[in-house]
Amino acid sequence: MSKLSYYLFLSVFFISCQAEKSSLENKSDNYEIISDTSRASLDWNGTYKGILPCADCEGIETRLTIKSDGEFERSMKYLGKDDGLFFDRGTFEWDDLGRTILLTGENGESQAYQVGENVLFHLDQEGNRISGNLADMYRLEKSFADYALENKKWVLIELRGTPYQQDENQKEAFLFFENESVRIYGNNGCNAINGAYEIEAGNRIRFGNIASTMMACPTMENERIFNDMLKEVDNYSIADGQLSLNKARMAPLARFQLADGE
């Protein structure tokens, strides 16, 4: 082989190796982009809240629940307006990169959000992050979670310091805190109940308006005490499979036992 042929061979070999290396690097970069997504890496489902800017009101108090089954529920309260409370629901889809969701309501209207760690960024009509002085206001923060409390059934064992025993004329009194929707479900010993709750740091908790069915029961006193108890609770504690609902540092208003199998 002549020297010229030898050098030409080395040049082609070097260029080929560099091209293969570049191709592998590009594939690796693309893999990182595809795999490192909000959808794949974040615990994104749950309830997000915040007050979004409003052109003709004091703000839009927004509560948005995105569910793992691809559905959403949303409430929007236009602050300062008497008739400014609206509810909608629908489905959402992820973009190809798994970083943004597009909500489509039952009325056909859509809204996009970029999904971050414990936050949703409200996007403009072109799907871009909003910039400027109000940028920080276009975000919804995820509700605080406590998996020691949530997604478990808690059965009532004590109410206002008195042991609670279910008799044959009563239904089981219990509470279930659903993390994804941040709603409480249960029974007060007579009627089914449900409503919103909110957990804050330091085991602080508060309940929203509690809705109830309207069945008549032989004894209604425990039902009244149970419902009134939920209105007073401002903190909770969990120890040895028992949940205590408390007000300040007073004696527990109610105690619950973790249901069998939980």
Results as ranks from 00 to 15, higher is better:
Leu4Pro: 00
Leu10Gln: 13
Leu10Tyr: 09
Phe14Met: 08
Ile15Gln: 00
Ala19Gln: 05
Ser22Pro: 00
Ser23Met: 10
Asn26Lys: 05
Lys27Leu: 13
Tyr31Leu: 15
Glu32Leu: 13
Ile33Glu: 08
Ile34Val: 14
Asp43Thr: 11
Asn45Ser: 15
Gly46Leu: 02
Leu52Tyr: 01
Cys57Met: 03
Glu58Phe: 14
Ile60Asn: 12
Thr62Ala: 11
Ile66His: 01
Lys67Ile: 12
Lys67Arg: 14
Ser68Tyr: 03
Asp69Pro: 03
Arg74Glu: 13
Met76Glu: 14
Gly80Arg: 00
Lys81Phe: 09
Gly84Lys: 00
Gly84Trp: 03
Leu85Gly: 09
Phe86Asn: 07
Phe86Tyr: 14
Phe87Lys: 00
Phe87Arg: 01
Phe87Glu: 15
Trp94Thr: 12
Asp96Glu: 15
Leu102His: 00
Thr104Asp: 06
Gly105Asn: 09
Gly105Arg: 00
Ala112Phe: 02
Gln114Ala: 15
Gly116Gln: 04
Gly116Arg: 02
Glu117Arg: 05
Asn128Met: 09
Leu134Gly: 04
Tyr138Lys: 00
Glu141Ser: 13
Ser143Asp: 08
Phe144Arg: 02
Ala145Trp: 02
Leu149His: 07
Ile157Tyr: 01
Glu158Gly: 06
Gly161Trp: 00
Pro163Gly: 10
Glu168Val: 01
Ala173Gln: 05
Glu178Tyr: 09
Glu178Met: 10
Glu180Leu: 04
Glu180Ser: 10
Glu180Arg: 00
Arg183Phe: 10
Ile184Gln: 02
Ala192Glu: 08
Ile193Leu: 12
Asn194Pro: 07
Ala201Leu: 06
Arg206Cys: 13
Arg206Ile: 11
Phe207Thr: 13
Ile210Gly: 02
Ser212Tyr: 05
Met215His: 05
Thr219Ser: 09
Asn222Leu: 11
Arg224Ser: 09
Phe226Val: 13
Phe226Arg: 07
Met229Phe: 03
Lys231Ser: 14
Lys231His: 07
Lys231Tyr: 03
Asp234Cys: 11
Tyr236His: 05
Ser237Arg: 02
Ala239Cys: 04
Leu243Ser: 09
Ser244Cys: 05
Leu245Ala: 15
Ala254His: 01
Glu262Thr: 11
